[in-house]
Simulated assay, not measured.
Amino acid sequence: GPPGSGKSMLAARLPSILPPLSAAELLEVSMVHSIAGQLSGGKLSDRRPFRTPHHSATMAALVGGGLRARPGEASLAHHGVLFLDEFPEFTPQALDALRQPLEGGECVIARANHRVSYPAKFQLIAAMNPCRCGMAGEPGHTCARGPRCMSDYQARISGPLMDRIDIRIDVPAVSAADLIRPMAAETSADVARRVARAREIQQERFESTGAKGIGTNARCSTSMIEKLAEPDASGLQLLRDAAEKMKFSARGYHRVLKVARTLADLDGKPTVGRIHLAEAISYRIAGERLTAAA
């Protein structure tokens, strides 16, 4: 979305709707922060980490490294949120280094005299403008460089990295009228209760199936999500048509199922319906032009 539309503000509010860390998660987070020397005064907090590195951060700063192979921002965001503002301004090498942690949930640092693995199960949130001038596609604005400004800027994000991002949303500009007469909105506390209930449903489901160590749909295996999010006949046809038209990769197909299963959990529905699949598919449409540009 364009500058000033509220992308960074929305990302900063995300920790307020996430459930607090469990005892086991708190122990893991405190161990990583202790190794990095960032456990100030030995104080522990059940609030999930929220890391916001600057776009000038190096690859070692993001995934870990240095003389003593210390954990990077991805590991410091373990069980929390890693927010990358001005996404295309990061170096492509640093961004692509996040592909393995996003897939495997850990950062493996291999050096001549060190080889260490740090946990890195984080939620990646990224924000970017549509082009370098920031206003491409907005009504009443014309980009001076034309379509190439948008395609060149968005092509800085590689296709394989975009394929690992489940939800891509366009955030429109906020007008003065929206600020003068704001619409009624849900409070963070209300959203947090709904999120906590959905997390409880997922944990109960995985415990009943004997899948220990898995707490969210995002972390379950592909074979498991195919069973847990098996759509009905109409939903299957919708998913098949969308996969053929949008050229989903195998990863993209399973990511859509995971998002749809989570949407059904938020609604308190035991099965995944066509409406949940349609919403999950719509969340990937906004990023298709980024994949095409890359």
Rank of each mutant, 00 (worst) to 15 (best):
Pro147Ala: 09
Ala176Trp: 08
Phe90Ala: 02
Phe122Asp: 10
Tyr153Ile: 05
Met150Gly: 00
Ala173Ile: 01
Leu102Asp: 08
Ile167Tyr: 09
Arg199Val: 11
Val191Leu: 15
Met128Glu: 07
Gln203Gly: 05
Gly137Arg: 05
Ala110Cys: 07
Gly146Met: 10
Gln202Ile: 13
Val108Gly: 00
Asp152Tyr: 05
Asp166Lys: 00
Leu102Pro: 07
Gly159Cys: 02
Val116Met: 01
Arg164Pro: 07
Cys107Ile: 00
Leu161Ile: 00
Ala144Pro: 13
Ile109Val: 13
Cys107Pro: 04
Arg168Ile: 00
Ile169Ala: 09
Pro88Tyr: 03
Arg181His: 14
Met183Thr: 14
Met135Leu: 15
Met183Glu: 14
Asn129Pro: 09
Tyr118Asn: 10
Asp96Glu: 15
Leu95Asn: 06
Glu103Arg: 05
Gly104Glu: 14
His114Asn: 08
Cys149Val: 10
Asp178Ile: 02
Pro147Glu: 07
Cys107Gly: 03
Ile180Pro: 00
Ile109Thr: 08
Gly140Val: 02
Gly134Ile: 10
Gly105Phe: 06
Ala127Leu: 07
Asp170Asn: 08
Asp190Val: 13
Thr187Met: 03
Ser175Asn: 02
Arg99Ser: 03
Ala97Leu: 10
Ala173His: 08
Gln123Gly: 01
Phe90Asn: 04
Arg115Ala: 04
Ile157Leu: 15
Cys133Ser: 11
Arg145Asp: 15
Met128His: 07
Phe90Thr: 01
